[in-house]
Design a protein around this nucleic acid. Structure first.
Length: 597
RNA sequence: UGCCCGAUGGUGUAAUGGUAGCACAAACGACUCUGACUCGUUUUGUCUAGGUUCAAGUCCUAGUCGGGCAGCCA
């Protein structure tokens, strides 16, 4: 379970929270209600995490609520697989932080008809997530949305248009050039009602007609040139099945979904600024009785060397650049989770970048720092050797086991220890030995001394090579007087290296990840697939200290001097078998390395 | 040659007319049985030009630069 940093970070402040605070002060709403409204057409990524933390954060800070709602108005693109993954990812990200704010609806519920101030109204309130509840979805409002459209027609604010999609485009004009009215704009209410009913009953093929708002085809804002409300799609919906052959468009469905759920602050990204007048237009023209929601926009997250676009991430998956949506190199929440990144680190990161209307590019180091910061405090230290070289300590008899106490986490207030075995033969990291050392090399070299962490100081006496000249093993002597409790325990040497006993270790596959893209702004490339890093994954067979055979999937480890590692979901779990299980670890992130080579 | 949004160190972000601060990054140093962590020091900033004001990063005007808008996608 992720632990909040201690002391807790101060409550964030930004221009949207300022607006919310003012609304709270003025008692404008009975309760602050936000929503996170993904379309189920892909997996959630780091960009969504920013939105989730904003919306749930505001709910949490104001004793409010945040509804998870699927914006599922386009059956051609949406699938149940995505509904399930998104729900799981949201719950993982907010677990232990904002679970109590998560709004679901009763299974199968749709808005109930009510009366407010003598006026007919529709409302669907939340319930806590549980056995008999499910996320909200726009598709459960299709009946109400249909009725509201009838009302708009009756009020002369919507009409059925017979223009083809192509003609609709050309009638719309262009930025700087006014559009022109559709020839069907002046249809009578009765005719519109009849045609709209027949759209619903399936009398017309896809694209033959549409229901449009009647606003202003000459508006300088393109989104006010009679934008469409409904289109005909003879396509089954993952949720409503074959019930409908007309589906509402985003702008129409979204504002009304917000209203039906009692949302007060509808927070979205900057590209919807131009849509805001339309959002307000629909709600105002309907003359709804309860307080109306308001839309606010912020800049989406951009991260260096990372793609944050569902469409492009889908391409990486479908064209097999990665193993799936949850490949640990992906910036998806499921990928980051599999990689071993704690939800608390993601929350700390997105909170840290802030909320503004400036289109920025955040450096990856900020994200990496957030991950290391959380893991440094939480991860158990272990010894592991990624690229082993054998070192024979000739003054330790074969079969002798010298126990050493290793600290589990020096960051703890009262650190505990575990026992590790020092034996005649150990493995050390290939990088920790240099036959011809560069300047300021602290590690092992011929004739040199170095400390084996938690054990003792050793000296390299001999370098053994094969016929080809490659090093096959190192031979040296251990100075056992420098062990804990020994007379020379305080002897100083410049270098301390990690190691594992050759006879008391387990093998593991370790997956080493590097950034997925070679350029800071892959999204700006003509073809982002051309800048995929071909060396983003390196697989090694490592030697781990024996205790890691019992690792569990939720454990987080620091392999000392190397980085943070977590068991991969491909790794078999359970007790070690004879011969040992096949362990698979992912490197979450390396330790910061200021030793420039 | 329209409408909308924006601009503070290398990056991100505070300062709500009154001392330009924080984080990351970078450099150097201290500490160290992790070249990690931690700690210390340092470098670097209000897009431009006018205006209002005792006082402007903040308000006004104009410009420059960047982003968004012409899906029956969201």
């Amino acid at each position: 379970m992720p632990v909040e940093p201690n002391p807790p970070a101060p409550a964030p402040s930004d221009f949207i929270r300022d607006i919310v605070a003012a609304d709270v002060t003025q008692k404008r709403y009975a309760q602050i209600v936000t929503r996170f409204p993904p379309e189920p057409n892909g997996y959630l990524h780091l960009g969504h995490a920013k939105s989730i933390c904003l919306n749930f954060g505001i709910a949490r800070e104001n004793h409010g609520r945040c509804n998870l709602r699927f914006d599922d108005t386009n059956p051609a693109k949406e699938e149940t697989e995505y509904v399930d993954s998104i729900t799981a990812d949201v719950r993982w990200l907010i677990a232990g932080w904002a679970d109590h704010c998560l709004g679901f609806k009763p299974n199968g519920a749709s808005p109930a008809r009510t009366t407010v101030n003598g006026q007919s109204d529709n409302y669907l309130g939340p319930v806590a997530p549980g056995a008999n509840s499910e996320p909200f979805s726009a598709s459960s409002y299709f009946d109400q949305l249909y009725d509201y459209a009838v009302e708009l027609i009756k009020r002369g604010k919507a009409y059925v248009c017979d223009l083809s999609p192509e003609d609709t485009d050309s009638y719309r004009g262009a930025p700087g050039r006014p559009g022109k009215d559709s020839p069907f704009r002046t249809r009578t209410v009765a005719e519109n009602l009849d045609l709209y009913t027949r759209m619903k009953t399936g009398d017309f093929p896809d694209g033959a007609r549409s229901l449009r708002s009647k606003i202003d085809m000459a508006s300088p804002n393109m989104w006010l040139r009679d934008p469409l409300l409904y289109r005909i799609r003879h396509t089954a919906h993952h949720h409503t099945g074959d019930k409908w052959c007309i589906y509402p468009l985003y702008d129409y469905a979204h504002c009304l979904s917000d209203y039906l759920e009692g949302v007060t602050h509808s927070i979205c990204t900057l590209e919807f600024v131009d849509h805001r007048p339309f959002y307000n237009w629909i709600l105002e023209k309907l003359g709804l009785p309860r307080p109306l929601p308001h839309q606010y926009e912020f800049a989406k997250l951009n991260l260096g060397y990372t793609i944050v676009s569902k469409r492009k991430l889908l391409q990486l998956v479908s064209e097999k650049y990665v193993s799936g949506w949850d490949d640990p190199r992906m910036p998806t929440l499921s990928g980051l989770r599999r990689r071993g990144i704690p939800a608390s680190a993601i929350r700390a990161f997105v909170t840290g970048v802030g909320v503004t209307k400036f289109d920025s590019l955040t450096e990856v180091s900020v994200f990496e720092n957030a991950v290391r910061h959380e893991l440094n405090a939480a991860a158990q230290r272990r010894l592991a050797v990624l690229k082993p070289v054998k070192l024979v300590l000739t003054n330790i008899p074969a079969g002798e086991i010298l126990e050493c106490a290793a600290t589990n986490n020096p960051q703890d207030a009262n650190p505990t220890t575990r026992k590790i075995a020092l034996t005649r033969e150990v493995f050390i990291e290939a990088d920790d030995f240099a036959e011809v050392p560069p300047p300021k090399y602290f590690r092992l070299k011929p004739g040199g001394e170095v400390r084996l962490k938690y054990a003792c100081i050793i000296k390299c006496d001999e370098v053994v090579k094969n016929a080809a000249g490659a090093i096959t093993e190192l031979r040296g002597t251990a100075d056992l007087t420098t062990r804990a409790g020994g007379p020379n325990v305080d002897k100083k040497v410049k270098g301390t290296i990690h190691w594992v006993s050759a006879s008391k270790c387990v093998d593991a596959e370790v997956r080493l990840y590097d950034r997925l893209f070679n350029v800071a702004e892959p999204a700006a490339e003509d073809d982002f697939l051309k800048v995929v890093n071909p060396r983003s994954l390196e697989i090694v067979t490592a030697k781990l200290e024996a205790s890691l055979a019992a690792a569990k999937p939720e454990d987080r480890f620091q392999f000392e001097r190397l980085g943070y590692f977590a068991l991969d979901k491909d790794s078999p779990v359970g007790p070690p078998l004879a011969g040992g299980p096949r362990l698979i670890f992912n490197r979450t992130i390396s330790l910061k390395d200021t030793w420039a080579k």
